[in-house]
């Protein structure tokens, strides 16, 4: 499977990465190089194999749970302290029209 330029643009848009027109061909070449190398996986027979999402044998098999107690929050200052655009007690972004 190799990517055409339309797909490269679509993927960049999905990932919210601005892609200048003059870079499309280069990026396409790099991605196709990597994907071509990954292609060898198609040769592996995985019939009947259960996918492994992560973890390790003997690790955490089931998600641990937390009690329903309020232990966090009440720290608007800290939450907002790193904001590039802070508007009072809110984060500011360019107006979103729906």
């Amino acid at each position: 499977m190799s990517l055409d330029t339309a797909t490269v643009r679509r993927v960049a848009a999905l990932a919210r990465l601005r892609l200048e027109e003059q870079d499309v061909a280069r990026v396409q070449g790099e991605l196709n190089g990597i994907l071509g190398w990954i292609e060898q996986l198609q040769a592996v027979n995985t019939d009947g194999v259960e996918p492994m999402a992560g973890g390790t044998p003997g690790g955490v098999a089931a998600m641990p749970m937390r009690e329903d107690v309020v232990t966090d929050g009440g720290q608007a200052e800290a939450v907002l302290a790193n904001a590039p655009d802070r508007e009072g007690e809110y984060f500011g972004v360019p107006k979103v029209v729906e």
Binding site: L41, Q42, E50, P51, M52, A53
Partner: peptide, 18 residues
């Protein structure tokens, strides 16, 4: 359209490696 061919396949091979 690519999830099964790539991600799911990779997870299965990960299981084989383990």
């Amino acid at each position: 359209g690519y999830y099964d061919a790539y991600y799911l396949k990779a997870q299965k091979i990960r299981a084989l490696i383990a």
